[in-house]
């Protein structure tokens, strides 16, 4: 017994090191699996408040660019509105709100990383503002990521610049679907893989979200094709996509809630169990 105690006393530094190292590695592995839920995220009371205090100060520096972006978005939305008006009867448009199935909420980004291989953003809205895990996040110019942790007042978003992210996307022209991934090389360029070979692909074509998941509505802008190659077996294209968003300077975003999500998931579950 005495020898065991002596052993522990002699090696106490090593044991302490081993224990703490294992805890750290465990926490690291935890972040590599998206669905396990995270114990540690920057959506907590301390770091959330520190980041939002910082963003209160630095937020003023990019206001001019932010205004320009918003004006551009307004112009685009106005054009769409005019198109809609010419199609629909204006009197019905005024008095009824079309049930779109999606609720948009605005939020401010208080922390943004883009230089690591797994990047996250922190938003200054959380459970209190009805932000939930698995909601989509977009900016005025396109897709940004998916909410992956929330606290009372803050939430973190797994950016599309994250090697774990896989988002369904398609060519605007031809309805061919693929998966959006990131190779960590450039924060303004992502990859679209698994586009079948027969799809008509040209440089400059627009890529939008596919609407095959319950997270993003169909038709959210992503980027344009910059370069394309056939993959190893030559059955699928690997496309290099230049993002519309400048992921390195983001300020305000919209969080999308799909109000039909539970119903869709429940139905899909039932079908799966029935088989």
């Amino acid at each position: 017994m005495q020898q065991i105690i002596f052993f522990f006393i002699r090696n106490k530094n090593f044991l302490l090191f081993g224990l703490l190292f294992l805890i750290s590695v465990y926490l690291t592995v935890q972040t590599h699996s998206y669905h396990n839920g995270k114990y540690v995220s920057s959506a907590n009371f301390l770091s959330g408040n520190v980041f939002s205090a910082k963003s209160n100060v630095t937020g003023y520096f990019g206001l001019e660019d932010e205004n320009k972006r918003l004006t551009q978005e307004n112009i685009r939305l106005r054009k769409q509105l005019e198109n809609l008006k010419s199609i629909a009867n204006p009197s019905t448009l005024d008095s009824t709100i079309l049930p779109s199935g999606y609720v948009f909420r605005n939020a401010r980004i208080i922390n943004n990383t883009y230089s690591k291989s797994k990047n996250y953003l922190t938003l200054k809205k959380g459970k209190k503002d009805s932000i939930k895990i698995d909601m989509g996040v977009i900016s005025s110019q396109g897709i940004i990521g998916i909410v992956n942790a929330t606290s009372e007042n803050f939430s973190t978003v797994q950016s599309i610049l994250n090697t774990e992210s896989q988002i369904n996307a398609r060519l605007k022209e031809s309805n061919h679907f693929g998966t959006l991934t990131w190779d960590t090389k450039n924060p303004n360029r992502v990859q679209l893989i698994d586009i079948p070979r027969l799809a008509p692909v040209t440089v400059g074509d627009t890529i939008i979200t596919g609407g095959k998941s319950t997270i993003f509505p169909e038709g959210i802008l992503i980027g344009t094709i910059e370069e394309f190659n056939l993959d190893g077996d030559a059955n699928y294209y690997d496309l290099q996509i230049k993002l519309f968003n400048d992921m390195t300077s983001l300020k305000h975003v919209y969080v999308i809630e799909n109000t039909n999500k539970e119903e869709i998931l429940q139905l899909e579950n039932e079908v799966e169990h029935a088989e």
Partner: peptide
């Protein structure tokens, strides 16, 4: 915690401290 990086900094720091 601030960087959303799980435990990578903790592991590296503990190692060099040891």
């Amino acid at each position: 915690v601030f960087g959303d990086s799980g435990g990578v900094h903790a592991a590296a720091s503990v190692f060099i401290a040891y």
